[in-house]
Design a protein around this nucleic acid. Structure first.
Lengths: 207, 207
DNA sequence: TGTACATCAGTGAACGCGCGTTCACTGATGTAC
DNA sequence: TGTACATCAGTGAACGCGCGTTCACTGATGTAC
C-alpha cells in the first residue's frame, strides 16, 4: 500500500501477510521467520531490516488485526442504528464473522501468547477494541433503570467472553467436542437469553 | 501410583508431571521431550519407552486433565443437591477453579492444538466431560415449561462458552485488556443473568 | 542534465542451539526350573 | 533355595533439521550540486 518500486516493493506488509497465512494454517508455532521470509521471496536476513525479531512481526500482525477488528465492530454497531438492540446483536455477529474471515489475525491477537505490551501500537489498538465493545454495551444498557444495570464494562465483558468462548470451543479446530450447533446459532441464542436476563428483550419473545 | 521400585519407580507419571509443570510455566510450546526427560531425571531417550512421541505425552496429560475435570464437575454438581440451581452454579464455579488450580492440565486440554482423537482414552474422557455439563444443564432446565426450554446441549454449550471465555480472556496471561473485574465475579454474574433470561431465577432477585 | 556520493533494502553465508528421534547397548528385575 | 535365562526400562551418543539471529557485503535508489 505504501511505497512501491523499491527493491521489493513493500516487504514489511508482504511479511505480515506471510505471517498471517502461516499462522492461520499451522497455528502460532507453525510460523517461523525463515519461512515468512521465504514466502515473501526474500532472504532469511531481510526481515530484520524491518522488524526487531520474531515477536515484533507477530505483534504487527496482531496490531493490524485489532485495527480491522475495531473497524468491523464500529461498522456493525453503526452508532446504535437502527436501534441499540439490533446494533448490539450485529456487533456480536461481527465478532464471530471476524474470527471466521481473518483466522490469521484472530490467532495472532488471541492465541499467540503475545503480551499486549509487545508494542505501543498494539496495546493502543487493543484498548480501542475493548472500548468499542464497552460503548455498544453502554448504549444498550442506557435503556435499563439505573438500579438494575450492570456496569457497562461488565456487560461488555460478559458478551465478549461468550463470543470468545463460542469461537474457541465451537468454531475452531481444537477441542473437547465437536459443535452440537452451528456457532452462529449458539452465539445468537446465547446473547439473546443473556439480554432477556437483563430485561432488554421481553420475556415472552421468541429466542 | 502403580508399580514402585523398578528402575525409576514410575517414569510415565513422572514425565506427565514434568509435562504439566513445563506447559503451565512456559505455554504449550515451552514444552520439549528433552526438557521433560531432564526434569524427570532421566536420559532423553527414556520417554520413548513409554510414549510414542511428543504428541502422545501431551495427549496423556490432557487425558488425565479431563479425568480430573470430570470428577471435579461431578463433585460440584453432586447429583443436583441441594437443588438444581445451586448445583449448577457450583458446577460453573468448579470450571474456573479447575482452570486456576490445574493450569498445566487446562492448557494441555484447551490450548495445545491437540486433536481430541490423538488417543482413544482422550476422546473418551473429553466426551464424558461434555456429558457432565449437559447433564447438569438438563437437570436444571427440567424446571422450565417444555415449550420455553432450549435443548440441554445448547444450554450447556452457552455456559461452557461463557466460562471458557472468561478464563481465556480474563483469568490467564495473554490478551486484549486486563480484567476489569475478578473472573469469579464476572462468571457468577454472567451465568446469573443468563439463567434469569431463561426464567430460572426470578427477575427481581439480586444479581 | 549529469555526475558523485550517501543511504539503506536485501544478500548469502555462517553461527550456535535445542529439538525429536534412533540405535545398539547395559544392567536391573522377574521367572522357570 | 540357587542358577540360568528372558525381559525390558533406561543409557549415552549420535543423527539431521530448522530455527533465530549476526555479519560484512552489494547494489539499487534518492539527493546534492
Amino acid at each position: 500500500m505504501a511505497k512501491q518500486g523499491y527493491h521489493h516493493g513493500n516487504l514489511p506488509q508482504a511479511l505480515v501477510e506471510a505471517t498471517l497465512t502461516l499462522i492461520a494454517e499451522c497455528g502460532p508455532q507453525g510460523f517461523s521467520m525463515a519461512e515468512a521470509a521465504k514466502q515473501a521471496g526474500v532472504s532469511p536476513a531481510a526481515p530484520y531490516r524491518h522488524f526487531a525479531g520474531r515477536e515484533m512481526l507477530i505483534a504487527e500482525a496482531a496490531r493490524q488485526g485489532y485495527e480491522i477488528f475495531v473497524t468491523r465492530m464500529e461498522t456493525a454497531f453503526d452508532e446504535g442504528r437502527p436501534n441499540p438492540l439490533a446494533a448490539f446483536l450485529a456487533t456480536g455477529r461481527a465478532y464471530l464473522a471476524f474470527a471466521r474471515s481473518n483466522p490469521g489475525h484472530y490467532v495472532a491477537m488471541f492465541e499467540s501468547n503475545l503480551s499486549v505490551n509487545a508494542s505501543p501500537g498494539l496495546s493502543d489498538a487493543a484498548g480501542r477494541a475493548q472500548a468499542v465493545l464497552t460503548r455498544a454495551a453502554a448504549a444498550l444498557s442506557a435503556h435499563l433503570p439505573p438500579g438494575r444495570r450492570p456496569p457497562a464494562a461488565m456487560f461488555a465483558a460478559h458478551v465478549w467472553a461468550m463470543s470468545h468462548g463460542v469461537v474457541e470451543l465451537f468454531a475452531r479446530g481444537t477441542p473437547g467436542a465437536r459443535a452440537p450447533f452451528p456457532p452462529e446459532e449458539l452465539l445468537e441464542t446465547g446473547i439473546g437469553i443473556y439480554l432477556r436476563g437483563l430485561g432488554l428483550i421481553p420475556p415472552d419473545s421468541a429466542p
